[in-house]
Design a protein around this nucleic acid. Structure first.
Lengths: 280, 280
DNA sequence: ACCGCGGTTTCATGTTGCGAAATCGGGGCG
DNA sequence: CGCCCCGATTTCGCAACATGAAACCGCGGT
């Protein structure tokens, strides 16, 4: 059965299941096993298994009453995450450019990605200082201004989980003691910006602030990176306030309820914040 | 290695690949093969194949420069489709209720789904007439007011494709002759509403109109269903104009450019319309 | 009570997904 | 200038596992 030359490294079950997923979505999301099987020309047993698998993974939802499938919560969540990030990048871009010009330094926009920040946009100043990080690189959460800004605005359980893991020591200044780090995070949650003094890369100081999505979750963060020697703490604080304000403006554009300026998560010693109420 | 009892009908490659997909999205969409492999604990060969498959299917995008993966156009398209339909349903609901009350009859909201309309919402009047269709059911495009309204506003190539297939004869009145049907579709495209006189179910007359998404594509349609005997053609035309107007208002809320009231597709004998210019 | 249609379960089969290891490629450092 | 190392591809043989025909079940209609 030569048929398709199977040119490449395509895993057939995956490919077909994705076809099923796409079909369900395109079909306006109320689909029976039979129609999937017929429309895509795959035996119903197989279609059944794919629907089952997709449902279990939360990509589809199974309405047992009429035995129909529709798009599931996981897919919706993914869509929202993606569009939030995309919008945040778009909104942030002019801000990043402005920051580069003002401080003559590298500015970063990064997303949170399991235990790390991943740089999406890195804009270098023409003449100024440059850091090692390039778009696509990843760094620990606890050793960067970006990451600390995110950590400080994260729901408590998630932050706690991260902090309970061993923290990599990137430079001699990296904060690896949990109590110390948590103290700083609380302060960041209050002030709305994070300062990092060579904790990730020797000689580089960063000042960053989080951008919150419509649920108040710190999806991305922006920062400036300057030579450690060039900026005093008080200057950094001024910059921090400014950056924090810019980030907050973007958060507001993303729909992060007008009720929360910049103090959602870890503020107040043991304050607990939930991204989504456990209401289900 | 008992581990998971694999209780059920889950296809492992699919499950794992969905995990990879979710990871890429959650990670803020700039991910290397290695991080996927490490984070999910699957050998890199396998991760590679999944990424490859997901990319080929358009669910991911592969940035060859830095060898990173991010969310692909297909996933974005799915997300938009879903959210459009969801919004359309929400916006349409009060309209449906109003129509039920006004006409004392069943009203429908259906989506287009490969060669058929699938009923999403069916609201019955308390006392009045009821049709067979229930939420989740499907009917042919050419035999229902809903379907004809959609067909008439569909991009020409897609409509042509459908019409070139054999058309099922649901009742004695079903239009199965292509020329005749096309003539009617052109008229529907102009007037903005479709009338069906017992062509899908004996004794039931329907009047329907399409709701266009932000691309001008007829994603869903709404209709009322009354006993064939109860409504004259002239009454139906009045109702049609009203329904068409309501549908157009919803289309506008969905962002269907303010430049097109109700006449996008098949209008004017051979007019051609493209959903998306073939530029891609 | 019968019939038929869709969904679920079973089961034997061989296709095909898997992952260790070898290969390639490129960027950084000496 | 060339070596080295890391990460992405490719190869390849094995048996795990996806597959789909067929049997089974439950329901809704007649």
């Amino acid at each position: 059965m030569p048929g398709t030359p199977a040119n490449s490294y395509v895993v057939q079950p995956v490919e077909k299941a994705l076809g099923v997923l796409a079909y369900v979505v395109e079909c306006g999301q109320v689909v029976s096993l039979k129609s999937v099987s017929q429309a895509l020309g795959i035996p119903k047993t197989t279609a059944f298994r794919y629907l089952q698998t997709l449902t279990r993974a939360g990509f589809l939802e199974h309405h047992t009453d009429r035995d129909r499938y529709s798009v599931g919560p996981r897919l919706r969540a993914m869509a929202r995450t993606d569009s939030s990030i995309t919008r945040a990048r778009e909104l942030a871009h002019p801000v990043l450019v402005a920051l580069t010009q003002e401080y003559q330094c590298t500015v970063n926009l990064a997303v949170k990605g399991d235990g790390s920040v991943v740089y999406l946009d890195v804009i270098d100043s023409l003449q100024g200082f440059r850091t090692k990080a390039r778009s696509g690189d990843a760094n620990p959460l606890h050793s960067t201004a970006l990451g600390k800004a995110i950590l400080a605005h994260m729901p408590q359980p998630e932050a706690r989980d991260y902090l309970s893991r061993p923290l990599m020591e990137r430079t001699g200044r990296t904060l690896i003691e949990r109590a110390e780090l948590e103290r700083q995070l609380r302060q960041i949650a209050q002030s709305g910006y994070a300062i990092e003094t060579g904790e990730n890369e020797d000689g580089a100081m960063c000042v960053g602030a989080p951008i919150l999505d419509d649920q108040g979750y710190p999806l991305v963060a922006i920062s400036i990176a300057v030579p450690l020697a060039r900026m005093s703490t008080s200057h950094a604080m001024v910059a921090g306030r400014k950056i924090s304000e810019m980030a907050a403006r973007i958060s507001r554009s993303l729909g992060s309820g007008p009720s929360m300026p910049t103090v959602p998560a870890a503020v107040a010693a043991g304050g607990v914040s939930q991204r989504t109420a456990p209401a289900g």
